[in-house]
Design a protein around this nucleic acid. Structure first.
Lengths: 229, 229
DNA sequence: ATGATTTTCGGCACTGAGTGTCGAATAGGG
DNA sequence: CCCTATTCGACACTCAGTGCCGAAAATCAT
């Protein structure tokens, strides 16, 4: 049995329509979609921010996007899945960046570069990013829904480490590196979404460098420069 | 706003009766409990193992323990909370052990000793431990329920690091260390529950030493000795 | 244009988790 | 025997999530 979460679990087929690439061949066959995963996400983010997650029903999200409750669940398997689009695409970005890293780079250095490169956001996207990440780490039900998405993130790093170290992906060290790296990044995310005093990449860089330094006592004494970003 | 999960969230008051210490003063006032948190846990673990988590209803767990559905929710806030008793007490153990560590020990060394000391189990408890941990890391709904419990674990370590480094608990490095240490331990847990080839503490020790070594490339090449435990 | 095909949508019914309420059951204390 | 404290069971309710099926809205073929 795999040590990872079994995604075949509760009936969901996993095939979601997160292909908001708006690149439909124009001569698509059947009835055109009445909404999109992105539109549902925006509506949900607004409602969650205004009224809270638990106080918002799926009916309200669907109505705000102009569709029925039933249709919401055609776009997302669960109410709590609606805010994870961008995170999931970031996982794919990191996976791609890692595959392109020069082979002579130390593992953690390659991971650090890939993570930093995947986390540059346009200034106009930052407010939404911050609201979404604050909700994801603050609301218990949303924090719980993170598990499966984090799992994919860790797998991307574990697979890279496994290739580099010539070990199977399920062995101990690839698992440790994947999870420890995500742990450091999550700490940076939370620190950043709680305060607005520096660029996200500053915290990510500091956290990953601390990890590569073995979390030694001497490197833990100084906070990273709060250079406003 | 705290970067941690907001436990006030969905109405749960947090005050559960996990006091299975069977040390009731004997002259207790009202009607005696018809079951216990532990009894519900045992029944749930058996049913989850036999039929699966999603295929087991709360009604079945409650009936197996000889109480009503409503009573189950007086002992646990949610169906998925029923397997976390021992983990939560381990958190308390680690918190205590960390507080007693000699002050001149490096932070990660103190954490490693505390974690290893808290994870010695009696041989007869191992089979149940393994079944429970396999479920917790395999079933999606159970893995999702881990968030709040992991949060407490991380806080215990973060608080220790914060004291040692003289920083506030919410600053970046205590957060990083707390999460990275848990990440390493979870990797060890999963590796151990997936295979039965060594003692749990062997994997925990290897994972934490790798973390303290900065996850450097050279230390990641060899699996820990699979000494049967 | 009309009909066949394809895809999305909406409505309905159903299971089960989780919660509030209230009265009954069961203990000890005076 | 009453009073009080505590747990329990029953009921009702909201809402998440799922299966099913027919309707709606588009394209393609004739």
């Amino acid at each position: 049995m795999s040590p990872r979460v079994d995604n075949q679990g509760s009936g969901g087929n996993g095939t979601r329509m997160t292909d908001d690439v708006l690149a439909r061949p124009a001569n698509r066959r059947g009835r055109p979609p009445g909404t999109s995963a992105r539109e549902l996400e925006v509506a949900a983010l607004r409602l969650f921010s205004e009224q809270g997650f638990h106080e918002t029903t799926v009916d309200q999200i669907a109505t705000a996007a102009g569709v029925s409750r039933r249709t919401f669940f055609r776009y997302y398997d669960a109410k709590a899945d609606v805010l994870w689009n961008e995170f999931d695409t970031e996982v794919e970005t990191i996976r791609t960046l890692l595959a392109e890293m020069p082979a002579d780079l130390p593992v953690l250095e390659a991971v650090r570069r890939a993570v930093l490169a995947a986390n540059h956001y346009r200034a106009e996207d930052v407010p939404e990013l911050r609201r979404r990440m604050t909700l994801l780490s603050t609301v218990p039900d949303l924090a719980a829904s993170a598990a499966v998405h984090y799992d994919a993130w860790e797998r991307a790093v574990s697979a890279f480490v496994a290739r580099r170290s010539g070990q199977p992906e399920e062995s101990l060290y690839p698992l440790v590196v994947g999870r420890a790296v995500l742990a450091a990044c999550r700490a940076a995310y939370d620190r950043w979404s709680a305060r607005a005093d520096a660029d996200l990449t500053v915290y990510l860089d500091a956290a990953l460098r601390a990890l590569a330094a073995g979390l030694a006592d001497d490197v833990l004494r100084v906070e990273p420069d709060p250079v406003p970003g």
